[in-house]
């Protein structure tokens, strides 16, 4: 049992983080900064899982395990995304998302 901080507060923090990430994803032009926004989004989801786990069902570990899995997925996603970004950089010499509007090049 965790005293003092209600679940709502965690959720609100995570929500703010999530939509800040969304905002970053929508306005940033550089692909790497977009990737960082994506990490924010994933992280906010993790906070939600953990908070639900601890404050609603402390006897189980689902929230924690899914957080672990999401971290693993985030790592995989980051590695593949960076590989793609480097490949794009080789071809276009910049990594501006607005220059990538064709499927093949």
């Amino acid at each position: 049992m965790f005293e003092g901080v209600p679940l709502n507060w965690f959720l609100i923090t995570a929500t703010l983080m999530f939509f800040i990430g969304i905002y970053g994803f929508l306005v940033r032009k550089n692909l790497i900064t977009m990737l960082m926004s994506l990490e924010l989004i994933l992280n906010s989801v993790n906070i939600n899982f953990v908070a639900f786990n601890k404050l609603l069902y402390p006897q189980h570990l689902e929230g924690m395990f899914f957080t672990v899995f999401i971290i693993a997925v985030a790592a995989a996603e980051a590695s593949v995304a960076i590989a793609i970004i480097i490949n794009i950089y080789r071809r276009l010499v910049n990594i501006d998302v607005e220059n990538m509007n064709e499927m093949k090049n």
Binding site: L26, M100, N101
Partner: peptide, 13 residues
Amino acid sequence: QSGQLQTYAWVFV
């Protein structure tokens, strides 16, 4: 269908 990723994302959100 402009090919602009962020436009798509905005519409999605």
